[in-house]
Each structure stands twice: as structure tokens, then as C-alpha cells.
Design a protein around this nucleic acid. Structure first.
Length: 212
DNA sequence: TTCAGGATGTACT
DNA sequence: GTACATCCTGAAC
């Protein structure tokens, strides 16, 4: 089982955010395995980034996971209702992470559909199929990720981890992401972040069920 | 198709 | 008390 390692997550945050596109987030829930191709990410770099919860080294009980070793999870509640999953990057004590903003299901479609909408995939309208996992709150909902999953070591966990190929979980692999297929833009929902609103740290790939 | 408004809980001031 | 790395619904076009 080739989980992505601490060395991978220890790289520069923007590098990791781009490299995670096309990788697979694997989730075990109720004895079932779910796998989602990562199609949308954002980089957050605490030391220089006013949009990062740990900007300037701001260290509280909530932001503590951002200071953890590379490969840990940082899950927080947003707007009172939704969770967002981040993967901690760069060496320990440097508070940086990649937010997973969207994905496309590759394994466990019916379970994901039930977690999101309470009905199997076949019962979904086209709009709901299109909107299955195309947002950070939706991704967590569809994979049953909550604050229970905060501060986990994803390089060791068997409940939640990342692999670079479907072959790593016994499925047929699909083509790698071509560098020219990666799109770049300004991050979303951080209008308060002054100069950081212009940092081009939003990345996505065109992919089935990943329409924006 | 886009748009406004409301839901909702926690962290931090 | 205020802000928040969001999502859904329903109305207008």
C-alpha cells in the first residue's frame, strides 16, 4: 500500500498542491472503501499568507495541527455547518497546508451519494450528480470527514490517506495528469485577506464530475 | 442561467 | 459580539 509519505508532504506547499491533483483520497467508512480523485486544491502558507488561519505563526488550540509534521490532517468547521479538510505540508512547525476543494468519485459511488443526499447515485438528478463533490464542504460530507478526523497522521492511518495511483488500492490505473491540464487562479472565499487575495494558489484539473 | 438570503456553531476579540 | 477557506433553495430572468 503506497501511501504518500512525509517526504512528499514536506515539499513546498504550492508544489504539493499541484502534485496532489490527480492523486486519490482513500477513505474507509463502515467497512467500505471510498476513493476520490483530487481535482481541486488550494495552498495556504502561514508565514506569509493572511488567508491562512496560522498567519504569522498564530498558534491556538484550533490551529495546532498546522504545526504538526507533514502529512497530518487539519479539519475545521466552517460557517457552523460544513467541514474543510487540509493536508499539512512543509517541515514540522512551519504552519502550511493544502485545502482539498473538490474531487471525482472512483470507488464507492453509492455510499458517497448516500452520505451527501441520502439516496443511491441512480436516484440523483443531473444537477446533484454534477454537484456531488465540487466543493470543500461537499467533499467532507461525501466522505464522512468531521473533526473526528482532525490531527490524524495520514501517512500512517488506514482510515484516511492518499495514494498516487488507483493501482495502489488494487484498481486499474488511469492516465496521469498532464502539466498543461492544470489550471491556476486566485483563491476563493478569502476576500478579507488583503494582498493575499491575489496569490495564484488555487489549482484544478478538468475531470468528470468536477465541473466548476 | 445567475443571484440573494438564510442556516448554523465555534473560535477568538 | 463578530467573523467565518460554504452550501442550498427559490425567485427572477
Amino acid at each position: 500500500m503506497a501511501k504518500l509519505t512525509g517526504d512528499f508532504f514536506a515539499q513546498d506547499t504550492v508544489t504539493v498542491a499541484r502534485a496532489l491533483l490527480g492523486c486519490y483520497l482513500v477513505r474507509k467508512v463502515q467497512d467500505k472503501t471510498l476513493a476520490v480523485r483530487i481535482t481541486e486544491t488550494e495552498a495556504y502558507r502561514g508565514p506569509v499568507d493572511k488567508a491562512c488561519h496560522a498567519y504569522g505563526g498564530r498558534r491556538t488550540r484550533r490551529t495546532e495541527p498546522l504545526f504538526a509534521p507533514p502529512g497530518f490532517s487539519y479539519v475545521y468547521l466552517i460557517y457552523g455547518m460544513y467541514h474543510c479538510l487540509n493536508l499539512v505540508t512543509e517541515p514540522k512547525e512551519i504552519p502550511c497546508a493544502v485545502l482539498l476543494r473538490g474531487g471525482a468519485v472512483r470507488l464507492g459511488t453509492d455510499m458517497v451519494s448516500r452520505l451527501r443526499f441520502g439516496v443511491p447515485y441512480a436516484g440523483l438528478t443531473l444537477v446533484r450528480r454534477r454537484n456531488l463533490l465540487n466543493g470543500p464542504g461537499k467533499l467532507c460530507c461525501g466522505l464522512a470527514i468531521t473533526r473526528e478526523d482532525n490531527f490524524l497522521d495520514l501517512t500512517r492511518s488506514d482510515e484516511l490517506y492518499v495514494v498516487s495511483s488507483l493501482a495502489d488500492i488494487g484498481l486499474e490505473s488511469e492516465p496521469d495528469v498532464a502539466p498543461e491540464a492544470i489550471h491556476t487562479g486566485k483563491r476563493i472565499g478569502i476576500d478579507y485577506a488583503e494582498e493575499a487575495v491575489d496569490f495564484p494558489w488555487w489549482f484544478w484539473i478538468d475531470c468528470e464530475h468536477a465541473i466548476r
